[in-house]
Simulated assay, not measured.
Amino acid sequence: MGMGVAGSYLMARLKDSEHDVTGYELKSEETHDSICAWGTIKPVLTEFCKKTGRNFDDFLIHDGKSMHVKMNDNVKFDIGLHGMCTYDKLALIKDFIKDSKIIYGNPPKKEELEKEYDMIVDCTGFHRVYLPKMKEDFFLPTYEYKVEYENGVPYDDFYIEPFPGMSGYFWYFPLGEKWAHIGAGDYNKNHIKATDAFLKKHGGKVLKTKGRPIRLATPDRCKPYYSGKVVGVGESIGTVYALLGEGIIPSMQCVDIFIENMHDFAAYEKAIEKHYKVYAKVFNFVRAKIHKDFNFLKALPDFLAIFRYMKKNEDRFGMDIRIADLLKVAKA
């Protein structure tokens, strides 16, 4: 249920299996779209694509070299990139499902699905349509434009502006020689204001407007992962890395974990808890900053755990991980 990043990749992985799989998508085939910026890490997506017989280079748009960061007028720095890129996210999603049975528009209710299918996989993202309601959610509203620049792009590579108190950030993601995604997510709801201010300053023709909430509540806060015949995969169970607001790779990792454990939901839950354990530390760190309940000495153990995790997985994050850069963000 839901043909986004997780649902489409899962369809591609299961297509040639012993299972009879049907995909459902709320939107029509013509309006089916992919919300949020198209940034990811090339080597990681290359491996995911290989598992489905696809070449990620066919979807690659921009191979990043440096991310420009502006904390304020006095604090600006660059982060070296090694694999961070933009890609045609929607084209890959559509390619993942092109040979699968997909039913578009107004998917059936849970009761109807339970009569027809042995298993219902909830990949409906933030909406979590088929799983029980969470006790407490935590999310950011986001807003984005796809912009065309006829007279030259304002930046030749990735550019971000974290908001004060780590409440979110503005992003500029290049999409080739004259296009970009510009947008922001902000707990304090300044995301539209920041995006419009950048548009006014740098100009450009708006081609598309998108907006949606993104769940930052991590898997430990998104239980139950399953109920009856329904099991959640991807953002429906909180697979977003809260420090970056990144959900593409974590959601695809979740698909792989699900496939390994799809016949044992209890084993799936344990595997999810293990894989995303550090995400809870990241979430607690970010939430404390947002709620202005942050004490650096108190948060130091989590800060160091986050740094060690990201440093150890530099290739997965596609960037130079330096403790000085993390400190600049933490002290914002």
Rank of each mutant, 00 (worst) to 15 (best):
F307E: 12
E111S: 15
Y172C: 02
K135R: 15
K193R: 12
E112T: 11
G228S: 01
K94Q: 14
R13I: 13
I79F: 08
S167T: 15
N188P: 06
K223T: 04
F285P: 01
D157S: 13
W38V: 09
I249P: 10
I103F: 03
M1H: 12
L216W: 04
D302T: 12
D58Q: 03
L113S: 06
A217I: 05
M319C: 06
Y225T: 08
V5P: 03
M134E: 14
C123T: 11
D196E: 15
K312W: 01
K146P: 00
P162N: 03
Y159E: 08
M319G: 00
E314H: 00
C85S: 07
Y143Q: 00
S34R: 01
A194Y: 07
S66W: 05
L244M: 12
K208T: 09
R308I: 06
N313V: 04
F258A: 13
K312G: 14
C85Q: 08
G228P: 02
Y104C: 06
N313P: 03
S66Y: 09
Y155H: 14
W38H: 08
V147G: 05
N74I: 12
R212Y: 12
I182G: 14
I321H: 00
I248T: 12
I160A: 07
V121K: 00
K298G: 06
V233G: 00
R212P: 00
Y87C: 05
Y130T: 11
G2W: 04
I237A: 05
E273T: 01
M262C: 14
F158M: 05
T195Q: 04
A91Q: 15
F163M: 10
L45D: 00
E235R: 03
E148T: 06
K89L: 10
Y226D: 01
K229Y: 09
L60D: 08
Y9D: 09
S17Q: 00
I120K: 08
D156M: 07
V75C: 14
I249C: 11
A197Y: 10
I41Y: 09
Y268S: 07
K15Q: 14
A324M: 03
A37G: 11
Y279A: 13
Y187T: 02
P301F: 04
F294S: 10
M119I: 09
